[in-house]
Design a protein around this nucleic acid. Structure first.
Lengths: 116, 116
DNA sequence: CTTCATAGGGATAAATTTATCATCATAGGC
DNA sequence: GCCTATGATGATAAATTTATCCCTATGAAG
C-alpha cells in the first residue's frame, strides 16, 4: 500500500466520498443489498471488475466498517460479505445520489459529466 | 488533459460521484452556497487549495453544468461563479452525504475511513 | 496429471487526479 | 522599474487509484 502524504479534510462529504467513491463500491453495495454475498458471485454480477479489484474494494469497505466478512471453514473456501449497520445507514445516501445521477443522465444523455 | 481509456459505468451513483468527487468540489459548492463567488475569495476560504487547482475544479463543475461563470469586463479581471439549477438540486444530496459523513466521523473519531 | 473453482495477495503497470511551477496580461501603489 | 492583485493556462511532477499478471492452497472432476 501507500501512505497519504497530504492532509485530509475532516468534512462530512469528503468522508462519504471516501467511503463510497471507489469505482466499484456502489455496485458492490447494490449487490449486497440484493443478497449477492460471495466474491465470485459479485464478480459475475459486475462485468468489467476482476476478482482482484473487487477484493481490494471489499477490503476497503471492510476497513471502513461498511461491510463485514464471514468466513466458512469449507473447501473450497467460502466467504460472505454483509452490510454492517453503517452500511445500511448509507443506503438512503446512495439512493439520493442514484436519483440525482440518473436524472442528470436523462437530461444530459450520452455523456458523462466530465465530458459534456 | 487526458482521455479516458476505460469504459465508464452508466450508474447514477457513479455520475454523482464524478460530479462531486473532486477533492475540493464539495468545499466549492459549500462556498457558493454561502455566497462566496470569486476564485480568489474561494482560495482564501479553502486553505490548502491553490488557485490553480480551484480553477481546474471549477472548470469541471462548469462542464458538468453544476456551476456557471459570469465574467465582468473589468480590470483586474473579475469572475463570479454561481450554482445552476442542477447545482441547486444537488444540495439535498450534499446535505445527506454530509450528515452521514459527520455521524461517521463522530463514531470513528480521529480516523478517516480508509485508515481506520 | 491437468484443469477448474474458491479466496487471497505480491509485484508491477497503467490510468487518473491533484499539485507545482512558470508564464501572460492589465492597472495601480510605492 | 518593481511589486501587488486579478484570472487563466501550459507543462510537468507527484500522488493516488485501478488493473494486470502471476502465485499460493485445497479438493473435486475429468
Amino acid at each position: 500500500m501507500y501512505v497519504k502524504k497530504l492532509p485530509e479534510l475532516d468534512y462530512g462529504v469528503a468522508t462519504t466520498i471516501k467511503a463510497l467513491g471507489g469505482k466499484w463500491k456502489a455496485c458492490i453495495l447494490d449487490c449486497l443489498h440484493l443478497g449477492i454475498r460471495r466474491p465470485s458471485e459479485l464478480c459475475r454480477n459486475i462485468p468489467g471488475a476482476s476478482l482482484r479489484v473487487l477484493s481490494q474494494q471489499l477490503k476497503e469497505l471492510e476497513a471502513c466498517h461498511i461491510v463485514y466478512k464471514k468466513v466458512y471453514a469449507e473447501v473450497p473456501l467460502r466467504v460472505e460479505y454483509y452490510l454492517t449497520s453503517w452500511g445500511e445507514s448509507l443506503w438512503p445516501v446512495i439512493v439520493a445520489m442514484n436519483e440525482w445521477g440518473n436524472a442528470y443522465l436523462h437530461h444530459h444523455c450520452n455523456n458523462t459529466p466530465q465530458e459534456s
